[in-house]
Structures are given as structure tokens and as C-alpha cells.
């Protein structure tokens, strides 16, 4: 049985841990609101861009002259897995879930005899991938020096990816991130980003009129594709941020509650030992008194 002093020490240490987890939970809750607002503000642009892409793609037949970003390299050998993680921990299984999804895909691709490469965004998740696939990490993108990855970062990532693609470093790219559903649920998501999958056309022939293009369709499409890629990466980064804060909030809420339970248990134990000590003391004193009285 631990001594009274030891118990007191443990209670205090759990209490200070609880203070930390509680503070982190409140910070995450505040940041979550902002991240959610950001993610929502970015939606109109992505939606409009997808519509325009859809109507353009429907007008153009994919041929050998089409931009490589749309038509592909004609091969399906080297797959690049772009894994978007966060830089900070204390957010439960958020990062490991994304990495796990990427690793499952990597194994499936390797079983098919494909070559797998990684492009890692964010600090977390690097260790795992590097340990399992030490030679397959093509590049890493560092986001530690910016507070929250925004459009500028998405643009840089997209530009790097396009450059690597033009160099023929890979044929197909998949993006892994976490879709924000609620503070309790974040889904690891996989999405093919290169070659750009033609958006599903929502038969937007409602106006029926012939659309004029300036410059012509091919040129517009060539300009649109990198833009579309950037927007998709930007959306993924925003979803990731919201998910991270959501996961962090839930994990810290659980931790705070566990700490509370632990404190209760320890306090009960502490009080029991204290009472036991008092009882023993009293009993010995009583025996002495009775013995003394009898002697009279």
C-alpha cells in the first residue's frame, strides 16, 4: 500500500496533467470553429471550378494532344502517394489513421507489381513511412514555419507535384487526407489527383446556347488544370485542419475525463488509508487507557 505522502503526490500530478489536457481541449474547440469557417468559405470556389471543369471536359475529347495532366502519361507504373498530415500531436489517432490508409493503398499497389513513392506533407507521419519505405520517400513538404497552411502552401505543393510529373517521376498521384465530418468523426480519404479525373458532368445544358471561348477550349483547359489541382490540395489542407482540431478536441476531452476518474479513485484510496491510520492510532491509545484503568 502506498504511503499517504505518495498518494498525495500522485493526485497532484494527475491534477496538473488534467489542467494541460483541459487547456488543449479548449484551444482546439476555439480553433475548430475557425478552421470550419475557413473550410466553408472555400467551398463556393471549389464548387464553381468543378462545374466549369465539368462543362469544359465534356466538350473536349481526350486525345494524345490533350494536356498531360488530363490524359495521363499513358502508363500506370509509378504511383505517388501524397500524404497530408499535421505538424502537431495531441490529436488522438488523427495522423496515424491517415498514414494507415496510405500504407494499405501502398501494399495493395505493390501487390499489383506497381512502384510506390511517397510525398509527405506535414511533420507527423514521416517517421512511420520512412521506417517502412526508407527509399520510397520522393520529397517532403515542410509546413512547420507557417501557422496554418493556406492557399500559398497549396500552390507550392501543386507546383512541385506538376514539376515532378513533367519530369516523369510518377504516372499517377493519390492524395490522402482526412475529411471533416464532425468533432467526433473524421474520415481518412483517398483521392486521385493526377491525372485529373474528369469531374462528373451534371449535364449543364440548361441554357442550351453555344458557349464562346476566349482563348479556345484547349488553352483554357491547360490553364485550368493546374488551378483545379491547387484548389483540390487547398481543400484537402483545410479539411485536414478542421479534422485535426476536431480529433484533438475529442481526444483531450477523453483525457480530461479519464484524469478526473483517476483523481476520484486516488482520493478515495487516500481517504481510506488516512482513516485506517487514525483507527489504528485510536485503538492502540484505547488499549493503553483500558490497561491503565485496570491496573488501578
Amino acid at each position: 500500500m502506498a504511503s499517504l505522502k505518495e498518494l498525495k503526490g500522485r493526485i497532484n500530478s494527475v491534477k496538473s496533467t488534467q489542467k494541460i489536457t483541459k487547456a488543449k481541449q479548449m484551444v482546439a474547440a476555439a480553433k475548430l470553429r475557425k478552421a470550419q469557417a475557413n473550410a466553408e468559405a472555400a467551398r463556393p470556389y471549389a464548387a464553381r471550378l468543378a462545374t466549369v471543369m465539368g462543362s469544359l471536359a465534356a466538350k473536349i475529347t481526350v486525345s494524345e494532344n490533350s494536356p498531360k495532366l488530363l490524359a495521363g502519361t499513358g502508363k500506370d507504373q509509378v504511383h505517388l502517394l501524397v500524404v497530408a498530415n499535421s505538424d502537431k500531436g495531441l490529436c488522438g489517432a488523427f495522423n496515424s489513421n491517415i498514414v494507415k490508409a496510405a500504407l494499405v493503398k501502398a501494399r495493395a499497389l505493390q501487390a499489383d507489381g506497381k512502384t510506390v513513392l511517397f510525398y509527405l506533407v506535414g511533420r507527423k507521419g514521416r517517421a512511420v513511412v520512412r521506417r517502412l519505405y526508407p527509399k520510397a520517400v520522393l520529397a517532403m513538404f515542410d509546413t512547420t514555419d507557417v501557422r496554418e497552411p493556406g492557399f500559398a502552401e497549396a500552390q507550392k505543393i501543386a507546383d512541385e507535384l506538376v514539376a515532378l510529373y513533367d519530369d516523369g517521376k510518377f504516372d499517377v498521384a493519390h492524395l490522402f487526407f482526412s475529411t471533416f465530418k464532425s468533432a467526433l468523426a473524421q474520415d481518412p480519404t483517398e483521392q486521385q489527383i493526377i491525372p485529373v479525373p474528369a469531374p462528373k458532368v451534371a449535364a449543364s445544358s440548361s441554357d442550351g446556347a453555344v458557349v464562346e471561348y476566349e482563348p479556345e477550349e484547349e488553352a483554357i483547359l491547360a490553364e485550368l488544370l493546374p488551378r483545379y489541382l491547387r484548389t483540390q490540395l487547398f481543400g484537402a489542407l483545410l479539411e485536414n485542419q478542421a479534422s485535426e482540431q476536431g480529433a484533438s478536441m475529442t481526444a483531450m476531452d477523453n483525457a480530461t475525463r479519464n484524469a478526473g476518474e483517476l483523481i476520484n479513485k486516488l482520493t478515495i484510496q487516500y481517504n481510506r488509508s488516512r482513516q485506517a491510520a487514525i483507527t489504528t492510532e485510536l485503538t492502540t491509545e484505547l488499549i493503553e487507557i483500558i490497561a491503565g484503568a485496570e491496573a488501578l
Binding site: V52, A209, V210, V211, E212, Y213, E214, P215, I220
Partner: peptide, 19 residues
């Protein structure tokens, strides 16, 4: 400010797309 020159858009403009 279109890529191939400025253009004004009023109501009822024909469908048009430009960088």
C-alpha cells in the same frame, strides 16, 4: 480584364468563357 482584351458584361450576355 480578359486575357485577350477587356470585355463588358451586361444582362443577357451570350454564354462566354475567358481567362
Amino acid at each position: 480584364p480578359g486575357a485577350e482584351g477587356e470585355f463588358g458584361v451586361l444582362e443577357g450576355h451570350a454564354p462566354f468563357m475567358s481567362t
